[in-house]
Design a protein around this nucleic acid. Structure first.
Lengths: 408, 408
DNA sequence: AATATTTATTTTAGTACCTAAAGTAAATAA
DNA sequence: TTATTTACTTTAGGTACTAAAATAAATATT
């Protein structure tokens, strides 16, 4: 008469304790109880199990002792080596591989130049298997298990089916990639949109803790967006929600990389800005369809130094963004819009036009209710987010796994 | 050593059983178990409690018996008189009051012509209290309790704070209405946007059961929208999400009732259609700022009969809607977009332009992934939705109440 | 008509897991 | 050395679940 998995309240409490430990670092049992609304007796029981499974460890007592009387707290923390995840970021002509430990810390990071647009679907699979294999033998010794692999891809992906539907980095479509990797490496494989990864990292920052509904706009070669509703990325019916870059600014306007006209991306992305400037200004040479960071910085400099043509190009980008953000506010009414991505380098040059357009386009009721901020860009953010998401998604498995391992 | 409310799993199961009964009508215990993933032993225990509290009743055995051997099922159903809710729909110059029973059926409905725009906030409160009081004494005898009151308002409301922020039916703003009514009638008061009510009804229909992400667009004097994410209305940071009607079609375009230019509403709402037609066509006379149903029907007829001016007016409305829906698809990527409201009378006249604009504006990936349908309009739908939402919201209280009543 | 079979519901017995309270541990303050 | 304070663990009691057994109520078979 044993019930196979109880009524899940233990399972929930167990996961809650792990999440709290990952978020806070090291916490005493009594505080874990208070933070999660359970009694410290229950925390004792849960943490005893974890200790036996090697998922957590007790911290050595602090010296000097914290002031105050009474028995000092025994802090417990996740055992970073209990599990690890590998996150692969796939972008145009580059892949990045990052290893994160069970506590969420980055342990290893490497970049590889890869002609992604020249790869076939099979090439990509072989390449990823190869790179992940190398990481496994070189970097993953000392970890109890590989909890999961995360693929963070720019473009449209279906997390559910594990299929890359379309990516600007790839010349093929509809590649079911997760299943093959999962089989090869015997672990969960998460396929995520890169903007969702970044949004998850940002949402976890204390400064934005009170913003459950958060929109992150990523400026760069393309324009991406992620919407977090109650802290979780919103994926539409097909996992391709939030195609902000291809919402309309001007019907029949500038040509977009997607083949249609008037998309916001056709005004505010790197390639759009550079295209608009190329005929009028002298800029560093290079591939004008894929402007380099150096080329973009030069263009931004011109605008900030007062060049009227460059200024107008950024102003138009700002207006396009303003209209797009006004639509987002009207539809989502989030607590906070964060603008980030490599394109924030030009934020100062476009923000005046963006804010005034926004102000014009907004209903009075919506004015001032949403914080709109830019946010410094860090190329490692994507993988940090991927690691956090993958750990969260796989904690259940890690738990189950440790239980069966101990039983055997 | 009693724990005050258990670990909520009983509470959850209890609510699940009530919801299933409300949805399905009458169900046997064994099926209630299967539908909710609990054992029939648990259903026995829960239903015994309900019977004692008078919340459900056993149906008389069916005659003739359903074929098949074995002990016949004893169906149980909600006791419709266990509770009731009153839903008030507030629209321009009219209020509707509807009484629904515990099973969700409408028991009574009445309409009153009221000069809503002439009311002060206090007038409105007095009026509502009066009307509800009358309903209570005339219609609510025989019910064990009044579970709640629902106010379904066109416009922007804050459900959380119970405040009407803005409504086209009212000439005042920011009226905290829920608290006063709750105090007066000693029950929960839900304040809801009318589009959310309608979306809830539609989402509950079996035809749309497989569409957890659903967008409902309401055409009428104004244009409203409701977004259901995983079946629940999405409210942004301030509860004023989904201002679809005021997202932009043409920057610097036609003047909108909100005072700005180029909103979709300024092209596709009743007043916009009528305004565009008034100078060119002969139409029934009346208040041209608030065209009547008769006036609108005449205009629609002209377009459908091939009048070129009327056709072009509807085509432009279709294009505006098409652009707006394209944006909604790009941002939300829902499973289904339903177009309803009194304005669907003109759907046939605008749909060709709408679909072709949509097709032009959409990324290839999004084409054909979302069903877009129109849906016949019924003026009672709003209140039916309000009743359903209010019952769902108050089941917990009803439960608690019945427990304490029995204990006493 | 009696018995077997089938299906639904209820009862019983056993388990998981929670909490409050009591007990123990480990520190500081008096 | 003793009292006090705070943290953690153990104990005892309780809720609520499930599987299995028992019971109930029908039809099918002999």
């Amino acid at each position: 008469m044993a019930l196979p998995f109880g009524d899940s309240s233990r399972h929930e409490n167990t996961l809650a304790v792990i999440h709290t430990l990952r978020e806070k670092g090291s916490v005493a049992r009594i505080d874990l109880g208070a933070l999660n609304g359970i009694s410290s007796a229950t925390v004792t029981s849960i943490s005893a199990e974890f200790l036996q499974q090697g998922l957590i460890r007790e911290c050595p007592p602090e010296t000097p002792r914290p002031n105050g009387r009474g028995r000092p707290k025994t802090l417990i923390e996740l055992n970073p080596n209990a599990a690890c995840v590998v996150c692969i970021k796939l972008s145009i002509n580059e892949i990045q591989l990052v290893v994160g430990d069970f506590s969420g810390q980055v342990r290893h990071s490497e970049h590889h130049a890869v002609p992604t647009l020249a790869l076939s679907a099979n090439d990509l699979e072989v390449l990823l298997e190869e790179k992940i294999s190398a990481i496994c033998t070189q970097q993953l010794t000392g970890f109890q298990r590989l909890a999961g692999i995360c693929l963070a891809v720019q473009g449209v992906v279906s997390s559910q089916s594990g299929t890359i539907i379309w990516s600007p980095a790839l010349s093929f479509r509809n590649a079911p990639i997760s299943a093959r990797l999962a089989e090869r490496f015997h672990c969960s494989v998460l396929l995520e949109n890169d903007a969702n990864c970044i949004a998850s990292v940002l949402a976890a920052q204390p400064a934005y803790a009170d913003c459950p509904n958060l929109v992150v706009i990523m400026l760069g070669y393309g324009i991406g967006m992620s919407v977090l509703i109650n802290g979780v990325p919103y994926l539409g019916a097909n996992g391709s929600a939030a195609e902000f870059g291809h919402s309309k600014y001007q019907p029949d306007g500038a040509l977009c990389a997607c083949g249609r006209r008037g998309c916001i991306e056709a005004y505010a992305s790197d390639y759009a800005l550079y295209r608009a400037a190329a005929n009028h200004l002298e800029l560093p040479s290079g591939d004008s369809a894929h402007p380099s960071e150096k080329q973009m910085q030069a263009l931004t400099q011109l605008a900030l130094q007062g060049d009227p043509v460059a200024q107008e190009i950024y102003a138009e980008a700002g207006r396009a963004l303003g209209v797009g953000i006004a639509n987002v506010l009207a539809l989502f009414n989030p607590d906070l819009v964060l603008i980030t991505g490599s394109g924030v380098r030009g934020f100062d040059a476009l923000q005046a036009a963006m804010y005034s357009t926004l102000d014009e386009a907004l209903v009075a009721e919506l004015k001032g209710t949403t914080r709109i901020e830019s946010c410094a860009w860090d190329r490692d953010m994507t993988c940090m987010g991927g690691i956090a998401m993958t750990l969260n998604a796989t904690d259940g498995e890690t738990l189950l796994d440790s239980q069966t391992v101990r039983e055997a």
